[in-house]
């Protein structure tokens, strides 16, 4: 273990440069974040992830945000265990009917100000599962969504772009 730890002192970090931000995304978000919220958050956002029926593909890529290449925490973004500690809900899945109440209650439990990022094609409009008796079809059918990060699943860089855009506009 000592060898591994020592080596990591000498090696250059694997962490990659932050993604370039899309002006259009920034402009959309800026309108939604008022000055008071920006002041209170102080360039730091806590994220609560909610799986509302995804295939787990999106979760794998959200997990990857924590690895040494993307290192989400350097942007002041971190995942928290409870919606009561969260500023952002990161929601995946087509929203199954069996998860509807859990998602609504998670949203209500998140204190204001709060934002919702819907992840993946399923989170956008139900994706491949749209039209099933068991799904509602997209996060915005249940709670208001501030930003969509599309893709099946979106690559970590795309997720990073969305989340960093959120924090840039809230700073």
């Amino acid at each position: 273990m000592r060898k591994l730890l020592f080596e990591s002192l000498l090696r250059r970090p694997l962490t990659e440069a932050p993604p370039r931000l899309d002006d259009a995304v920034l402009a959309t978000l800026a309108g939604r974040l008022d000055a008071v919220a920006r002041f209170r958050l102080g360039r730091s956002l806590s994220i609560r992830q909610v799986d509302a029926g995804s295939c787990n593909g999106c979760e794998l890529e959200i997990h990857a945000l924590g690895n040494s290449f993307y290192d989400l925490e350097r942007f002041g973004l971190r995942f928290v265990a409870s919606p009561r500690h969260a500023d952002v809900l990161l929601v995946t899945g087509p929203v199954t009917r069996n998860m509807r109440e859990a998602l609504e209650r998670t949203y209500v439990a998140t204190p204001e100000p709060k934002w919702v990022v819907a992840v993946g094609e399923c989170g956008f409009d139900g994706g491949e599962f749209a039209g099933s008796y068991a799904v509602l079809g997209g996060v915005s059918t249940v709670i208001p969504v501030d930003l969509h990060v599309r893709g099946c699943p979106p690559a970590p860089v795309a997720l990073l772009e969305g989340l960093v855009a959120l924090i840039e506009t809230s700073a």
Binding site: G53, C55, G131
Partner: peptide
């Protein structure tokens, strides 16, 4: 909780569409 009705969506699906559904049964085992 994550029941999406995949077997229901399969009924009547084209082979291409069914293959896409099968690929999304469990993302880690796509």
């Amino acid at each position: 909780y994550v029941h999406k009705g995949i077997e229901g969506l399969m009924i009547g699906a084209s082979l291409d569409r069914a293959a896409r559904l099968a690929a999304r049964v469990s993302g880690d085992s796509t």
